[in-house]
Amino acid sequence: MRTLYSIGILASLVFNSCSNMPSTESSPAVASVDGKVLTVAELQKAIPKNVSKNDSLAFTQNYISRWVKSSLLLRKAELNLSPEEKDVKQILEDYRASLLIHKYQQKLLLEKHSPLITNKEIEDYYNKMSENFILNEDIIKGIFIKLPLNAPNLTQLQQWYKSDNPEDMVTLEEYCYQNATNFDIFLDKWVTVDAISGLLPKPIPNTPNFLKYNKFYEVTDSTSHYLVSFRDYHKIDEIAPLQYVTDKIKAILLNKKRIEFIQNLEEELYQEGLKQKVIKFY
């Protein structure tokens, strides 16, 4: 209890003085493990900016606890590992080199690499690799509507949501804005059947030919009517339509271009090194 009380007071002092308390080598000690010291100044640096007083207390307690446990583990490691096992200079140097290379590559990617992917590139990749995009679930385009049992003009609504007439679609949307508790007209995008079934009290039947022979699905529970119109569909194990996998193809092509950019960069630097005679082979 004394320890928690002391940490609480410390956290309050640190929080209230963060803006004007200097970080110096003579900063008061917070905790120590076998001569290794955690100071108030170090603790201040670790506290996130704009943190509340209560959050500062929790953060301080957690940080000190983690620091002590980490220091104890390090102490045991120093005592029990052989000199060879403790020699991590090469590991640190390799990590530093990898980190610097990665930062430089990312800098050049931002400065010189164009992330533009054209529609033609997407279409060409899809046509070449379409067999790699097999659906693992049924997808549909259509309409979903949920409305209260006492909603007006239900008969007309059933006519509108089944119609292909653009004027009926405008009327349907106006009706849904006024009366539906939830609706989605997704005629221009693919949605999984499972996503729509998750909105229904009884899911869309998962039978092989249901989507082939049924264009509409209606169900009712104790509070609402649910209406679904299937305007287009693709079944599981079919090749996915291009629109459905466009974002995935974009990500693939972007990654491919990044890899090519880095490979070209490495080759350019290699040739430059040879030309400037900074490379020597022995």
Rank of each mutant, 00 (worst) to 15 (best):
P148E: 06
K215N: 09
L43W: 05
K250D: 04
Y104M: 09
V40E: 07
I9Y: 12
K128V: 05
K212E: 11
T3R: 13
L253S: 02
Q178W: 01
N54A: 15
K256G: 03
D87A: 04
N150R: 14
E85I: 08
D124V: 14
P48N: 09
F59G: 00
L135G: 10
E167S: 09
K45N: 13
A195V: 12
D168K: 04
L99C: 12
E167H: 10
K53F: 08
S17K: 12
L200G: 08
V191F: 03
R2I: 11
Y244M: 01
K248A: 10
K215P: 02
V219R: 01
Q105F: 07
Y226T: 05
I47C: 05
I145M: 02
V40N: 03
Q243G: 09
S224Q: 10
N209L: 11
K69Y: 05
T39H: 12
I122P: 01
S82P: 07
I196K: 00
E266W: 05
S32A: 15
T60R: 02
W160Q: 02
I7C: 01
S26L: 13
P28V: 15
I143V: 12
S70K: 07
L265S: 04
G142W: 01
R75D: 03
I239H: 00
Y226D: 04
E268V: 03
Y217M: 04
L72F: 06
A251R: 12
T207K: 07
V219E: 03
Q276R: 10
C18H: 15
T192D: 00
F183P: 00
I143H: 02
S17P: 12
K257M: 05
A41W: 04
A251E: 11
A41D: 10
T246D: 02
D247A: 06
F133Y: 05
W190L: 06
I185A: 02
T220W: 00
T3A: 11
V51P: 00
H225Q: 06
S26Q: 13
S224Y: 09
K89Y: 12
Q159P: 01
L38P: 10
Q44V: 10
T118E: 06
W190A: 01
K277S: 06
L269E: 14
F281D: 05
L110I: 14
A97L: 13
P22R: 15
L110N: 15
L199N: 14
Y63H: 15
D34I: 13
I9W: 13
S6H: 13
Q106C: 10
E85L: 09
V40L: 07
K141I: 08
M1K: 14
S224A: 10
H102S: 14
N20V: 15
S82H: 07
S19L: 14
P241G: 05
D164C: 03
I236S: 09
I122E: 01
K202A: 12
P201F: 00
L254A: 02
Y175S: 00
T181E: 09
I279P: 00
I47A: 01
Q178L: 05
L13T: 15
L92Q: 08
E272H: 08
K146T: 10
K250N: 09
P148W: 06
L135K: 10
N20Y: 15
I117D: 04
K212C: 08
N54W: 13
S6N: 13
S114L: 13
K277E: 11
I259G: 07
N209E: 09
E78Y: 04
K162C: 07
Q156C: 06
I249E: 02
G8F: 04
D221T: 04
L74G: 05
L254T: 05
E238M: 11
A97P: 06
I101H: 11
E121R: 09
Y5H: 13
F59N: 01
